[in-house]
Design a protein around this nucleic acid. Structure first.
Lengths: 282, 282
DNA sequence: CGAACCCATTTAGATATGTGGACGCAGTGC
DNA sequence: GCACTGCGTCCACATATCTAAATGGGTTCG
């Protein structure tokens, strides 16, 4: 029961009750559900961790009070979205989360076509091929067609890499206006994955301009030592959100070879886009 | 990192798989968080759907009041776990959920070894190979090594199929005692995926007995028309939770060929299990 | 052995959320 | 054009959750 205070004061606690929030964001969200937010944040934190992490560490990182955290974890464990290590000392993402997350792939009508295209490109070039989508400032791998030597480290479906450090990302960034880029990209300096990653914004913009003229994007060891990449956008949306790439061992990544591979990808990507448009997939 | 399959759970959570719908019993639920439960149930419902579904349909299936559902959806959309179709009329699983869910795969120390084993078996047999784990009454596919002709329909990582309808599931069920099976399996009749699926419990138990004697499990068109399967357990846990299978076109699935393939899987599965035990992966 | 510490759980009061109904809008059928 | 229907949003109260502090069990160290 709340005693309504004197004149002028009708707030219950809504104004003063934003302790752990961005004080800079002036845009008030239309009342998000705190428990739901925390639930999701917990899952994301568990997902971002290398392996199982202890409850104490979770508490530290989230700042949630002990009892609140325990209640949430109990709920998530009961539902199979969080699992405990056999000794019960640490927690990690559970199998139900995998089941649900991969449903994202099923939902995507473009993917079956994309996968077929990857097969064709893989056969034609002999290199590992990827299909990815721009997700904020990152690219997310949606499908992979490995060659004999699997490079699991970088290719797993569902993984994200910074867009500016990948050929896939750069061809997609090249479709955006300067304003969109400013909103999309993180504050410089851009994070570096290798010593070749472009970290300077001006340099990136110049590279994007070259990419636009060229029609495909290139990258040499900018995200993974020993690998080079060439990517082409799949234009079934404007701006394009999806792209296809081939990864080459750095020794094979000569200008001529990259050019040749780019041609192959271009051809298949154009056919794929035409097919998607024709199927009404937007 | 161990899925606790039914029994074997420890202190924290009780099994509470359903929404709060039985107030009659002596419910000693350790107070699950309602918003968190709903959040997860929403995600699971979205994940189980074929594609995007309308809010109205969600409301029908969940029974949540309109305003509550909208608040939750807003929260989930703001966090990227739910996405709206371009016209805003329907919702589906978002990309962040994929990112988080696939982290389950990264967390599993056995998987890198398993993937290498799949490559070897795939090369040796020429068939599509799967690595899967028992998850309740289902098997969950954790890794796949496709051959040229991808059978995406059944093989996607993260998907689950009823254990009794798959070779992978049957070899794992064969490791369980009658009591465990009774707890694990759904009420008969067992759900059928094809006309060949075993739906009778007695028949299944007889098949499991044969499987035990044989050392590997067999299946012909019990889950997918046109496909047969043979599977062997990976014994690095007791009872085994993981298994490896090969899928053969039904025409190729003669007794002799299945026997030959089983031998190959057996050999590699034994090596894999030995390696996992030696690495201290339990 | 005991003190100090860390942790999961419990509790009661302080907040945040859930709920049903009201409202305005848009599409539909007559 | 109008009533009807279904939807998303808003509101205020009833309810559920969150929080901080207290509790009790376990482990570590001197």
């Amino acid at each position: 029961m709340v005693i309504s205070p004197g004149p002028g004061f009708r707030t219950l606690g809504r104004m003063a009750s934003t302790p752990p929030r961005d004080p800079d964001g002036p845009d008030e969200e239309p009342r998000l559900v705190k428990s739901a937010q925390r639930t999701i944040q917990l899952m994301e934190m568990l997902g971002a961790a290398r392996g199982p992490i202890t409850v104490a560490e979770l508490r530290e990182r989230t700042g949630y009070p002990r009892s609140s955290l325990h209640q949430l974890l109990h709920t998530l464990i009961a539902m199979g979205w969080v699992e405990q290590t056999p000794d019960g000392s640490a927690v990690g993402v559970g199998s139900r989360a995998l089941l649900c997350g991969t449903a994202y792939l099923d939902r995507d009508p473009a993917l079956p076509y994309a996968i077929r295209t990857l097969e064709l490109i893989g056969d034609a070039t002999g290199y590992t091929t990827h299909y990815a989508r721009l997700d904020g400032a990152n690219v997310m791998y949606l499908a992979t067609r490995e060659t004999i030597e699997p490079r699991r480290a970088t290719s797993r479906v569902g993984r994200e890499l910074p867009a500016h450090a990948t050929a896939l990302g750069k061809i997609l960034l090249a479709e955006r206006s300067a304003g969109e880029l400013a909103e999309l990209l993180p504050e410089p300096p851009l994070p570096a994955l290798t010593e070749h990653t472009i970290t300077d914004l001006g340099e990136l913009l110049a590279d994007l301009e070259l990419t636009r003229e060229r029609g495909h994007s290139l990258e040499r060891e900018q995200n993974t030592p020993g690998l080079g990449c060439v990517a082409v956008a799949v234009s079934y949306r404007i701006p394009a959100t999806d792209a296809i790439s081939c990864s080459l061992p750095i020794d094979a990544a000569t200008d001529e070879e990259l050019e040749r591979v780019a041609g192959v990808i271009h051809e298949h990507a154009a056919k794929l886009a035409a097919r998607l448009r024709a199927e009404g997939i937007r």
